[in-house]
Design a protein around this nucleic acid. Structure first.
Lengths: 166, 166
DNA sequence: GGACAATACGGGATACCATGGGATTTTGTG
DNA sequence: CACAAAATCCCATGGTATCCCGTATTGTCC
């Protein structure tokens, strides 16, 4: 399994990594477990935007964006913070609807950003997930493991059982 | 896709950026997803006014203007607050109706303010959106990304256990 | 181990959307 | 009141996303 909805908390949880094919039309199947973690949200699909720092696509259910957006809306909508957030995330976000059979189309901008051509890796990250070109992800993951190995001792002392993402 | 209506909250959510053409008659198609986020509002179109600080057009559904106006209205209509709101926004606002096929005409004042000639970028900002000359927006967006990249570290430091947008 | 269900994937047909052009109505101006 | 300019309506088109089908592969349950 790979993802669950924690009803009662109303938070989707994405786990595991799945590699799916991108067909000639640009369609990709979103892992069924990710999809089921999103059922019940106000939009049947995902929200995706290019990661600032990585060659990856950040994604989550629309609920997450809604709450972030609502939280920030309480501030002055003409403030610099709102401006940066809006331009960096909201403007680059894409609402990608699931087709009837749970597939979606990755827009070209997003595919380019992640160098995705014919395969896409869906990487669970808890409340969000990422979409990578499988090869690129393998490399990044290796580096992360090395780093974790090196920091193993200090991690032990602080947080015995948590895997530190990147 | 790019926008949704949060029924129950009655708040539209505009996401993504769409660049559409302004034809010889001055008509622009409002992105279909933006339009559908506005369905059911009391006016079939948008409300637009020049941004104070940027070379852009601020826009939203009429509901937003109504609720802001109503919120202020509870206070003294001759208050400084209302005065500022009225002068800064209401006075320069334009109600732009959708034609039959979802297009509208940008008034010359607005087009001039944003230096829009033959293309218009519709930029989602959550509960509102902006309209830019595509080239001008690209520059502003690059700056915003840089800022977001830089602020990412400080965001992390503030909330060590929350995953900040990457 | 075998049958069934669920999932991922491919392809053809359809519906939707952005855009253009012409025709008709409205606006404003003399 | 008539005329020109502008806005609106109405269609037509090309491209793309969506729907809907069938098929293969995987995992599950008896």
């Amino acid at each position: 399994m790979g993802a669950t909805t924690l009803w009662g908390l109303g938070v989707a949880l994405f786990l595991s990594t799945f590699v799916n094919k991108v067909d000639r039309k640009g369609r990709v199947s979103v892992p069924a477990s990710f999809r089921s973690a999103l059922t019940g949200q106000s939009f049947d699909g995902i929200v995706a935007f290019p990661s600032f720092v990585q060659s990856a696509i950040e994604a989550s259910g629309i609920d997450r964006i809604e709450s972030i957006s609502a939280g920030i809306d309480e501030f002055d909508p003409f403030s610099d913070e709102y401006d940066a957030f809006a331009n960096a995330i909201l403007a680059d976000s894409h609402q990608l609807a699931f087709g009837d059979d749970g597939r979606l189309i990755l827009p070209e901008v997003l595919r380019d950003h992640a160098s995705i051509t014919d395969q896409a890796a869906f990487v669970g990250r808890g409340p969000t997930f990422q979409i990578w070109e499988p090869g690129a992800f393998r490399i990044v993951q290796e580096e992360a493991r090395d780093k974790a190995r090196q920091q193993r001792t200090s991690l032990r002392l602080k947080k015995p059982d948590t895997e530190g993402p990147q």
